[in-house]
Simulated scan of single mutants.
Amino acid sequence: MTTLVVGATGATGKQLVEQLLRMGQTVKLIVRPTAKIPETWKNNDRISIIEASISQIRVDEMIAYLSDCQSVASCLGHNLNLKGIYGKPGKLVTDAVKLLCTAIQKSSPDKPIKFVLMSTTGYRNRGLRESISIGEKLVMGVIRLLVPPQLDNEKAADFLRMNIGQQNKAIDWVVVRPDTLINEECVTEYELYGSPIRSALFNPGKTSRINVGNFMARLIVESSLWDNWKGQMPVIYNKRS
């Protein structure tokens, strides 16, 4: 199985790629021409690297890149600096999701392509009417105004929920929502929930990036796990000791 990964050189994207390789998968990466690519990736026969800015890829080009892929995973995010937060492209994640979905649907695959999108517990799944406190609503409103990437992440997940939906013939999807991301060396036990069990702002949990990568890779590889979460937005926390 071949998976197209975007956002592969980010802190979580690297973990996803390594987990896919550990599970015997082949990966195709779209990375910025200026991205720092691990040397071990350059010499790996199971990795194909496409150097391109995803915001400049045309639909017909993306169709070609997807021609031998059975799954797609996005760990795209904005760099945490002034240019990354307030510069262009402001809708990096949303536009990439739309591009990928358009290309998948125009390619008319024989069976649905799996699409796994990394999001955040700061996104509320309105399809489940997930409730938050008034205080959290006020703070999130301010964050959306002052930190554009938050709104970008929300619109990307909303596009899958509302525009692709549950019965699309070309695309099946899962949106993975980690809480506060931390770095750990090894995969540890983690817990999965259909909705957040704590406040992302006032009582956040922790999720290691390697655990996010492991869960996203398992969704792609393990059919039973995929069937369990298809069309949903699971929340992942590191298991509490």
Rank of each mutant, 00 (worst) to 15 (best):
S199E: 08
S71D: 00
K155L: 15
P109V: 07
E39A: 15
I197C: 02
V93Y: 01
C186F: 13
D158N: 12
Y86W: 13
V5A: 13
Q150G: 05
P204M: 08
C69S: 14
K106H: 14
T12R: 05
R46L: 09
I210W: 02
E51W: 03
Q232H: 13
K91N: 15
R58E: 15
P234I: 08
C75W: 06
N183S: 05
M233V: 14
Y65E: 11
L29Y: 06
I236L: 07
V59F: 03
G135P: 01
D227W: 00
A64L: 07
G165L: 08
T121K: 15
S208L: 01
D45A: 11
E61M: 08
Y65N: 12
L92P: 02
A64C: 10
K36Y: 01
F215W: 10
C101K: 10
K106L: 10
P148M: 04
E18D: 15
K83F: 09
Q150N: 15
I47G: 09
K42E: 11
S131C: 01
Y86H: 11
K28T: 00
T102L: 12
Y190G: 04
V221C: 11
D68I: 05
R32P: 04
L117M: 12
R46D: 13
G141W: 09
I37N: 05
N125A: 02
S71M: 00
A11L: 11
V221W: 03
V27I: 06
M233G: 12
G213V: 03
L100D: 02
S195M: 04
L82Q: 08
R124A: 14
I57M: 04
K83H: 12
A64Q: 10
F215C: 13
M62K: 08
L192H: 03
K36T: 05
L4D: 00
I220E: 06
I197T: 07
E184L: 04
I220W: 00
N168Q: 05
L117A: 14
I50L: 02
A35L: 02
G77T: 02
K169D: 11
G84T: 07
V221K: 04
K155N: 11
I134Q: 13
N228R: 13
A96V: 09
V6A: 07
G87N: 00
A217G: 08
T102K: 15
L66I: 09
V116R: 00
P109Y: 09
A52V: 03
V17E: 01
S241I: 04
S224A: 04
V142M: 10
I50K: 04
G194Q: 05
G135F: 12
P33I: 14
G165A: 11
D60C: 07
W41Q: 03
L66V: 06
G10T: 06
N79H: 13
W229S: 09
D172L: 08
G84S: 12
K14V: 00
E136L: 07
